[in-house]
Amino acid sequence: MRALFFRDLALALRAGGGFGLGLAFFLIVVVLVPFSVGPQSALLTEIAPGVLWLGALLACLLSLDRLLAVDWEDGALDLLATSPLPLEGIVAVKAAAHWVTTGLPLVLAAPVLGVLLNLAPSGYGVLVLSLALGTPALSMIGAFGAALTVGIKRGGLLLSLLVLPLYVPTLIFGAEAARRAAQGLDPATPLFLLAGITLAVLAAMPFAAGAVLRVNLR
């Protein structure tokens, strides 16, 4: 399992692995927002938490269709399936590697991009915290979607259609926590709910994704 994790990290970091693309996408989305809504700083302050959350969510979605498809196409998934590793563990580890290479950089970059959107000073800490709590769920739910669409050619669009509705609760609680903090309100309740969803997803989703992968491999 550890070997798989570090292999996925190495593959993402080497040339052609696509590391940093998600981050660049996040940056571009955030830069485009003022162009579309206007440069008024009060307006930007108000929408900043939501825009940052939505940007992070879309950036996370961007790399999902390669999460399992690469291993599927070159046959590695077949070979992994005949190895001692359980499929549930394989999906969970790959989701974890996806989070480290995609989710974690987004979490770290969010406060910098918050400056661009004139985020209220009280919002920074909770924004980072809510993204740190929420993005692991995005990666794991995304891995489930990737497992569903792994056998489908050009399944990327379908993957988005399947995964985005599943992102709704995470987005609502995450963005709500960041918004409340930015407005000087107490963000504890949405943060707890967000953490609860993430924990439940991490606990249960590998089994659904493993079952789906088993069906697709047969």
Binding site: P165, L166, V168, P169, I172, F173, E176, P190, L193, I197
Partner: peptide, 12 residues
């Protein structure tokens, strides 16, 4: 997730 969204939306 639909049930979860229902309550998330109520909260929202």
């Amino acid at each position: 997730f639909a049930v979860l969204s229902r309550y998330a939306v109520l909260f929202w």
